[in-house]
Computed example of a mutant assay.
Amino acid sequence: MLSDKRWTELLHTRATNPSAVRQAYATRKRRSRLLSDNGTLFLVAAEHPARGAPDRRTLLDRLLVALASPAVDGVVGTPDIVEDLLLLGALHDKIVFGSMNRDDGFTGYDARTLVDCELDGGDMLLRTVDSGPGPASNLQDCADAVTELAAYGLVAMIEPVPQENPDSLARVVTIASALGTTSAHTWLKLPPTGSTGVLGATTLPVVLGGMPPDRMPWHRVVRGLVIGRTLLHPPGGDTRAAVEAAAKVLEAAK
């Protein structure tokens, strides 16, 4: 989908017209509702390049394939990825979450910028150690981000990492759920699990950060999927087929 012509135009725009990025944010057609008509949310995760994933053209090509599917509601990405997709015209009528941190420090989007860019929410990692929170600075930064996003009416999507056994993950879920001055706009991104201990530890909406196993029992708090490498770099390389398979799993669950 990313032809030589489109790729060359993107590179030319990046080099000669930086104001095009702001224009692309301003003219993006926004979707009015977070959830699909089926009450679910299916996002493609594209924040992993911030950890050093190479070959941007291949990544963007696969993202374009995924986002072209009507089953895919949108994307989670770092500013550079989101802006590439905006310049390619791929994010109209899609939900867009901006990645706020990929390590302990918040080095990506901040709440004010997410509002100014008219995105739909912020995605953040909550660093955990054993069965409790990790560095105090990360915990405070996540709490502050939750508070700021909620003040603007944007969703805060919290992903506790690393994930451990179900008992410790359930405890971390309760910690993540309590961050900030309100949980009204907080969602949790958790590993694919049917554990009632984990999913029963919160009333907040949950998205599963990966393809759930076959015949996994679905808990009522689970509202959707946020999948990255499994869709963008599947065995055999067929992104379209991987997207269709994930969409069928989500449809069957609801």
Rank of each mutant, 00 (worst) to 15 (best):
M1G: 12
L2G: 03
R6T: 13
L11F: 01
H12S: 11
H12V: 09
R14A: 06
A15W: 03
T16W: 01
P18Y: 10
Y25E: 04
T27N: 09
K29G: 00
R31C: 01
S32A: 15
R33E: 15
G39L: 11
F42I: 03
A46H: 04
E47Q: 13
H48N: 13
P49N: 12
R51S: 09
R51H: 11
G52I: 02
P54A: 12
D55W: 10
D55M: 11
T58V: 06
L59A: 12
L60N: 09
L60M: 07
D61N: 15
R62S: 09
L63H: 07
V65C: 06
A66W: 06
L67V: 08
L67C: 04
S69G: 04
A71M: 05
V76G: 04
V76T: 13
V76H: 04
V82A: 04
E83L: 01
L85W: 01
L87A: 10
G89V: 04
H92K: 03
S99N: 10
D103I: 01
F106P: 02
T107S: 12
D110H: 11
A111K: 07
A111T: 09
R112Q: 15
V115P: 00
L125F: 14
S131E: 13
G132E: 12
P133H: 14
G134K: 02
Q140K: 14
Q140P: 00
D141L: 12
E148Y: 02
E148A: 15
L149A: 05
L149M: 08
V155A: 08
M157G: 00
I158Q: 07
V161A: 06
P162N: 11
E164W: 07
T174D: 02
A176F: 08
T182C: 02
H185T: 13
P192M: 06
S195C: 05
T203C: 01
V206Q: 09
L208H: 05
G209F: 07
G209H: 05
G210N: 10
G210M: 10
M211A: 11
P213C: 07
P213E: 10
M216Q: 14
P217M: 04
W218D: 01
W218M: 14
V226L: 13
L232E: 07
P234L: 08
T239P: 07
R240S: 15
A241I: 05
A241V: 04
A241H: 06
A245N: 04
A246T: 05
V249A: 12
E251K: 13
K254S: 11
K254A: 10
K254M: 04
K254P: 00
